[in-house]
Design a protein around this nucleic acid. Structure first.
Length: 308
DNA sequence: AAGCCGGGGGT
DNA sequence: ACCCCAGGCTT
């Protein structure tokens, strides 16, 4: 059994009370279906809630369960994923569905360790599904939670992840894990923002180290330096448009507009995604396609390129 | 440890 | 126009 800390009692009560009043009404909190919850958690990897909401019901309508997702052509899954981005997630999500069909009799495993072995499921997603779908009493730690607990218990906005994992496990109110984890994420998203935190409205504030120290002079200096470093890095970066990442997106986008399922000839694809595409650009395009093929996002078929 | 992977949206 | 966002996998 994990260690408990009496000092966290007030913190727990305050957070849970706040959550009962201020929780966000999110579609994936209104379902008990483990598959639907898995879909939401994968969509929420690197993607804001506001962008997932309009896509969520549509995707579930198209792929209502694990077996329909597993059985679909991968290209259809990639189409249904637009415009969420990070398209590899769509391929991996289907891979996970196929794993579950093949290895788990079509039922998602309930434990963190088994979930963790599914394609595209890392520490965050595994604990999120275990907790929200199966009621496992485990901590769910994303960057929001890391920031909230880091500030409250350590006085640091960007604390060492391992240290936070330990604190999160200690702070977990057994029996209320799901509400607690969702509450911390809501607080991180709506109150304990990276900049301009609204400490006056924060249920953690009474026991928050960071707020108590006037949001710590040292922390502000560190944050300011980090901000300056990010700005410098941004300036020296080439613009997104024209990056290989940009053109990868254009290729997938072009292939999504089907043509039956016949795909697009290589040269035509080049012209479709890049103005002034010339024969000498072919090796560049080939390189992009090889990467996309490796990720399972594209299939080469002689001269033609299509979704898998 | 570091780099890759897309988009939309706030300011 | 600039800047932010933040999990999983590969190398």
């Amino acid at each position: 059994m994990q260690q408990r800390s009496e000092g966290n009692h007030a913190l727990r009560e305050g957070v849970l009370a706040w959550y009962s009043l201020h929780q966000r009404g999110l579609p994936w909190r209104a379902t008990q279906d483990p598959y639907a919850i898995l879909v939401s958690e994968v969509m929420l990897q690197q993607t804001q809630v506001s962008r997932v909401i309009p896509k969520y019901d549509e995707f579930l309508g198209r792929f209502p369960d694990l077996s329909s997702l597993a059985a679909a052509p991968t290209g259809e899954v990639i189409r249904a994923w637009s415009p969420l981005g990070y398209n590899r997630r769509a391929v991996r999500l289907q891979g996970a569905a196929r794993q579950v069909m093949a290895e788990h009799g079509g039922k998602l495993p309930r434990g963190v360790e088994a979930l963790r072995r599914l394609r595209g499921v890392g520490p965050y997603t595994a604990s999120a599904v275990a907790c929200f779908a199966f009621g496992q009493q485990v901590a769910v730690v994303d960057t929001n939670v890391r920031r909230v607990l880091g500030r409250a218990l350590l006085g640091e906005t960007r604390p060492p992840p391992q240290q936070v994992d330990r604190l999160a496990a200690e702070a977990l109110p057994l029996g209320r894990a799901a509400d607690w984890n969702q509450a911390l994420m809501d607080i991180g998203a709506t109150v304990c923002a990276v900049r301009q935190p609204r400490c006056q409205q924060c249920p953690v504030q009474p026991s928050c180290w960071w707020a108590a120290n006037g949001q710590s002079q040292a922390a502000l200096v560190v944050d300011a330096r980090a901000l300056a470093e990010r700005r410098a890095a941004y300036r020296t970066q080439p613009p997104f448009k024209g990056s290989s990442r940009y053109y990868r997106g254009r290729i997938v986008e072009r292939l999504r507009r089907r043509e039956g399922n016949r795909g697009v000839p290589l040269a035509e694809l080049g012209m479709a995604i890049k103005e002034g595409f010339a024969p000498q650009d072919t090796p560049w395009l080939e390189t992009l396609l090889q990467g996309l093929e490796q990720d399972g996002l594209v299939r080469r078929d002689g001269e033609r390129v299509r979704l898998p």
